[in-house]
Amino acid sequence: MSCQCGSACKDERFVKIDQILDQNGRDESMLIQNLEQIQHFLGFLPEDVQAYLAEAMGIPLSKIYGVVTFYSLFTTEPIGKYKISICLGTACYVKGAGEIVAEFEKQLKIKVGQTTPDGRFTLAGCRCLGACGLAPVLNVNGKVFGRLTTDDVAGILAQFE
């Protein structure tokens, strides 16, 4: 659903989306790029944004929804202030990433893919970060923590309280 007020007002999110589209173009092959930049700006891709984009790019909403749900990079739910992405690549796994995940789940009392009720932390597993020399490794909003043990978990969370 796009803005229903019918007046000249335009949701500022949509103004930003227009800017992104003007820059990248509205060709269907730019859909993934556009979605990526919009998510970077908004944090997630709610339904009204997808609907607006469908109209602006001339692509059916069903198709956009199909793309959004296909790729793991996109999310339709808001995420927490801090996103803890734990690398679940093979190198990290053989060095005990599974135990790190379990410890975060225990301390935050949420499962991977969930956000704490206060909206502070989102716990996510992610594909290889390519920092295998630091395995097991995780990333909190771009800050990398490596060579982790379960003892490090409480300290990392405390940094973002």
């Binding site: 092959s29 993934i32 790029q33 979605l35 790729y71 990079l73």
Partner: peptide, 8 residues
């Protein structure tokens, strides 16, 4: 450049 969005 075209970006992949996380699908093996």
């Amino acid at each position: 450049i075209r970006l992949g969005a996380g699908a093996f």
